[in-house]
Amino acid sequence: MRRFLPALAEHIHFGANTAGEPFNAAFAWLCANMTVKRPDNDAPREIITKP
């Protein structure tokens, strides 16, 4: 992932309707924190469901 994610974040921009906004928030957090060794525990968790 460390090799693939920076290129993905640089070249592909995701758009979504209101149902896809949690994914966009999580991906934006990943992009902002991909170079940080120990990011804060403030990652968006709306995309994670119990099942």
Rank of each mutant, 00 (worst) to 15 (best):
residue 34 M to W: 11
residue 25 A to D: 11
residue 4 F to P: 00
residue 12 I to W: 12
residue 24 N to S: 04
residue 6 P to N: 06
residue 38 R to K: 15
residue 36 V to I: 06
residue 44 P to C: 02
residue 41 N to T: 13
residue 24 N to M: 04
residue 16 A to I: 09
residue 46 E to R: 04
residue 11 H to V: 00
residue 39 P to L: 07
residue 11 H to R: 11
residue 19 A to G: 02
residue 32 A to K: 11
residue 40 D to Y: 11
residue 23 F to D: 14
residue 26 A to S: 09
residue 20 G to Y: 01
residue 20 G to H: 04
residue 23 F to V: 12
residue 48 I to N: 09
residue 19 A to Q: 01
residue 26 A to I: 11
residue 21 E to T: 14
residue 26 A to G: 06
residue 47 I to F: 08
residue 19 A to P: 00
residue 39 P to A: 08
residue 31 C to Q: 08
residue 4 F to R: 04
residue 27 F to V: 15
residue 20 G to A: 02
residue 11 H to P: 05
residue 24 N to H: 07
residue 38 R to V: 01
residue 36 V to N: 13
residue 17 N to D: 14
residue 13 H to Q: 09
residue 29 W to A: 02
residue 37 K to W: 13
residue 45 R to C: 14
residue 17 N to C: 10
residue 35 T to Y: 11
residue 25 A to N: 13
residue 51 P to L: 09
residue 20 G to C: 02
residue 5 L to S: 04
residue 27 F to W: 11
residue 27 F to S: 05
residue 3 R to A: 04
residue 41 N to L: 12
residue 16 A to L: 09
residue 46 E to H: 05
residue 15 G to M: 15
residue 3 R to V: 05
residue 45 R to A: 14
residue 38 R to T: 10
residue 29 W to M: 03
residue 51 P to T: 11
residue 5 L to A: 07
residue 30 L to S: 02
residue 43 A to G: 06
residue 2 R to P: 02
residue 20 G to S: 04
residue 8 L to Y: 14
residue 39 P to Y: 10
residue 5 L to Q: 02
residue 37 K to G: 14
